[in-house]
Design a protein around this nucleic acid. Sequence first.
DNA 1: CTTGACACCTAGCAATCCGAGGTATAGGCT
DNA 2: AGCCTATACCTCGGATTGCTAGGTGTCAAG
Lengths: 104, 104
Amino acid sequence: MKAEQLKGHLDALILGTLGGGPAHGYAVIEELKQRSAGTFDLAEGTVYPVLHRLEAEGLLASAWTTASGRKRRVYRLTRRGRAALDGSRREWRAFAHAVEAVLA
Amino acid sequence: MKAEQLKGHLDALILGTLGGGPAHGYAVIEELKQRSAGTFDLAEGTVYPVLHRLEAEGLLASAWTTASGRKRRVYRLTRRGRAALDGSRREWRAFAHAVEAVLA
DNA sequence: CTTGACACCTAGCAATCCGAGGTATAGGCT
DNA sequence: AGCCTATACCTCGGATTGCTAGGTGTCAAG
């Protein structure tokens, strides 16, 4: 898939991934790849800055943990993050519907 | 709708609009607004450069006409443009499907 | 004769995704 | 021991792209 298609939708995708439960950055990337059947195979340089920004916006909260000697930063949705996810879903439906109407 | 959502999909939308028949730039904007029920209300500075680029890429062809004293540049899909539209539709389906899988 | 709709155009700004590079641990292979 | 891969984090700069702001000009209505 073309990279530019993702722009403006990545926040929703990451919020959506974390809607299934807390996860650390690397796991978010894996989860996205899996759920999308390989369509979204994102670079770390794409995902990490977004996680930081979403946390700065108060939509995510993070905590450091250690699993088998490796440090992980686990992110979870805040209450505002969950509300943002709901909003993102609505925006997506509207957007997708509009595109269908034009491309049909 | 957020502006960034459009990135990467605008070419497809414009090709899709012209898939219904030739039109001049201003009409493309109106048509997009109508077909999307107001969701896509694009600025001229957004659309015109894209039309020029798509023509430069050989996906569109244009011809100047005059209607009631006003000059219009009418665009139509070339054969390659129609093929590109088909490809764009497929890419859109794949993208939309992947997003649904993540957001669901 | 001014306002609004129509119709075209361009230059530069702002946002964002990605590539490239860096650091570090664990485990398997040679 | 040494090396490679997978895991796991990070940042900087580049490329692309849509939008804002500005410009030109015609026509019809008030």
